[in-house]
Each structure stands twice: as structure tokens, then as C-alpha cells.
Design a protein around this nucleic acid. Structure first.
Lengths: 211, 211
DNA sequence: CAACTCATGTAAGGGGCTTTAACATGATTC
DNA sequence: GAATCATGTTAAAGCCCCTTACATGAGTTG
């Protein structure tokens, strides 16, 4: 550095990093007021540019939201991969970590989570979003395969079905109980404990006792 | 009937049933364009009144949405009660019906479902909504109690936890796979089959084998 | 380094939605 | 029948979306 611009405090005619600044502002606004409470004009204001400037970087409001969702899925996939950690130290323990990471993401990144699952981002609008979403899911799928490998081949369940079950359970708990707004439903336990118990019971149902 | 009004076709100065007409219009719009795509002006247009008229019946846009959500929860609770049918013919079979009813509601009443779970209706804004939501959940709770009664008392799981698991699983499957938009994720099975299999495995994990 | 070019900003404006305030209508009540 | 009140209408202020035409200045090229 620095061919300056942003470095030179007040900034001149050009912002220098508007795209990123807008996404950051969007995240703040979504976290604060939900995905519906976010609007381009306010993001522009937060970035210190005119209301028209964002349109140089995003076709429209939905495109910005889709970009936020995309980044969310990417971070999400990373977090899940890291939690899974290739099944170490043991597939079951690693699956527990995966579940915890799912809930942690919903809780700690409410803005990303909302953009990913609550803003109705037209799914087909960007193939990138679908792909990133698939990558996150594939971590779960991989985990299920590792766990299934512990079961005698003849009684092994379909791993796709298994991963869909676990995904749905995790997503249901996250959406209903682990998000800021909905978390107000009073629970007799933490969402993490709820999920862990659910996973344990489900795996037992599959015949995975040994852990 | 009929002290007329609405009966007299073209309607005069007063609509006669605007509140209901607005809710109906809101449902149509939500079904068509999602909860974010609904707006008061268009609902008013659909009802044939001026854009300001709705404010005689609803404080603001959110209040209308909350009312839709409330009605949704009421219908939802009814549908679940009917599906459960007091545990007939057998608790397990009735639970399956309950699950199917959950998915059917998400699929067949996308507008209600969206208003209930996707429009961010401030949860504390109306105690009524919470209560209606609780009533729907209590059907599930009741079902779990009936099922638990089949288990020897000493190995009986906490019914609250059990009902939360089943709720989360159902909700996850409904949200991820059984709604119009998200249903595009390709599945190797119907959401109904997925849920039924998940329930079966979970119950087996709980020690409920006999069915 | 001067001129060009292009990405990135600004200004201005049309069109739509939200919500309020003041006024109109007519259904209900006494 | 007159008074009252719920329920509509009109008008208007404020905000947002997005487009178009124009401005700036960073990078490129001779």
C-alpha cells in the first residue's frame, strides 16, 4: 500500500471500496432490522455516497441481497468444514461439532443467516448461490458417509436421506430456537443440547450405538 | 341475511366487509409474490378502496401481516388437531398424519405459512399470535405424550424434548423442501416420505419399536 | 506528461408505497 | 328525524427504487 484513496481520510470523488462498504452496511442493517428493513438508500448513506452510487455495483436491491447471501453460504460452508475437521477426532464427535457450528452460525451471524434463509432470494437467480449452498450441504453429506461407514454394510441407511434428516433437524432448531427473534420461545435446554440429544436419538434409531 | 351492502353489487361509499377483503387480498399477494411482495396499496386496490382505507382497520402494514399470521396459526392448529384426531386409530399412525398435515399446510397454504414463519412478525407485538402458535404446538406435545405412554415409565423420554425434536424436524423439512420456492431442491423422495422415515428412525431411537 | 477512456460518482426526476390529516358519507341510535 | 360514529375519500408529506444525463479522476497510451 497505498495508492491511497480510502487511506486519505475524507475520501474524494471516488469511494475506493464501495462494493465492500455496501455489503458491510447491508449486514449491519439486516442484523439490526431484519432483511426487510434493509434498503439501498440507507446503505448508501452509511457508506457516505449518493443513493445512486450503489447501482454501479449491484443491479438492484435483490442483487445486493443475493451477494450477501452468497458470502453467507461461503462462510457457512467454511465454518462447517472447519467444525467437521475431516471427522476428527471421531466421526460422532465431529458431527456434534458440526451441529454446534450450524447453530453458532445462526446465532452469531444473524445477518448472513437471514439473507441466506429468510430474505427470499430467487434461488435460480444466481447459480453461484445454489452452488455455495450445495457446498455447505456437502459437508453434512460427507459426515453422514463417514458415520455410515461405521455401520455394517447390509444395514447401512442411504446417506443422502440421513443427511437430509440431519440438515432438516438442525435447520429447524436453528430457525425456531437459535435466532435472535425466535429465540424468545422458552426452552428447557439450550438449542445446542436439544440438537445433540436429537442427533443421538436419531443415530441410535439408525443402529449407530457405539459412537 | 341480508342487511345487504356487499350484496348490492357495485358497493357504495362503504365497502361493508373491508377487513376481510383486505386479508383475502393479502393472502393472494403473499401467495403470489412472497411476504415481502405484499403491500397495503395493492391490497386496497384489489378490494376496490382508496389506499388510505385500510388504515381504518389496521394500524399499519405489519398489523395486517400479524393478523394474517394469527389466522394462519389458528387454521394450522385446527388442521393439526384434525389430523391427530385424538390419537386415532393408533398414536403412531396419528403422528404420521400429523406430520403429513404439517407438510400439507406448508404446501397448500403458502401464504399463511409465509406470514407465520417468514414475515418477521414481531413476536411480542401480539400476544394472540404467540398463543395461537402455542396452541398448534400443544397438539404435537399431546401426541408425544400419547406415544410416550406406550413406553415403560422408567425409560420414558421427556415429552417436551421429544415434541421439540419432532417440531424442528417437521419444520425443517417443510421450510427446506415443501414450500414452493425452496421445493426446487431436488429430493430422491417426497417430503412426506422423508419426514415419515425421520420420525420412524427417531422413535426407534427412543425405544419405540412396537408402533 | 498530455490526452483519452472508462469505471465510478453525483444530480435530478418519475413513479410507487406509507401514513397522516381533514373532510365526506351513511348506518346506527335515541 | 337529528346526532353520532364508524368507515370511506382526497390531499399531501416523506421515503425509497431505479434510470438518465452529467462529472470526476484513475489508469492507459503515445
Amino acid at each position: 500500500m497505498s495508492w491511497s484513496k480510502k487511506a486519505g481520510k475524507g475520501r474524494g470523488y471516488h469511494h475506493g471500496n464501495l462494493r465492500e462498504a455496501l455489503i458491510a452496511a447491508a449486514l449491519d442493517l439486516i442484523a439490526e432490522k431484519g432483511p426487510a428493513g434493509f434498503n439501498i438508500a440507507e446503505a448508501a448513506r452509511a457508506a457516505g455516497v449518493s443513493p445512486a452510487a450503489p447501482y454501479r455495483h449491484f443491479r438492484d436491491r435483490d442483487a445486493l441481497m443475493a451477494d450477501v447471501a452468497l458470502r453467507g453460504f461461503e462462510r457457512f460452508a467454511e465454518a462447517l468444514e472447519q467444525a467437521w475437521d475431516n471427522g476428527k477426532p471421531h466421526p460422532y464427535r465431529a458431527l456434534e461439532n458440526l451441529g454446534r457450528a450450524y447453530l453458532a452460525f445462526a446465532r452469531n451471524e444473524p445477518a448472513y443467516y437471514a439473507a441466506m434463509f429468510e430474505a427470499q432470494v430467487p434461488r435460480d437467480s444466481s447459480r453461484e448461490v445454489s452452488q455455495a449452498s450445495d457446498r455447505a450441504f456437502s459437508v453434512l453429506r460427507q459426515a453422514c458417509e463417514a458415520l455410515c461407514a461405521l455401520i455394517p454394510a447390509e444395514s447401512r441407511p442411504p446417506t443422502l436421506m440421513m443427511s437430509l434428516h440431519i440438515w432438516a433437524l438442525s435447520h429447524g432448531i436453528a430457525s425456531l430456537f437459535a435466532r435472535g427473534d425466535s429465540a424468545r420461545r422458552k426452552l428447557p435446554m439450550t438449542p445446542e443440547d436439544l440438537l445433540e440429544a436429537g442427533l443421538l436419538l436419531y443415530l441410535r434409531g439408525l443402529g449407530l450405538e457405539g459412537l
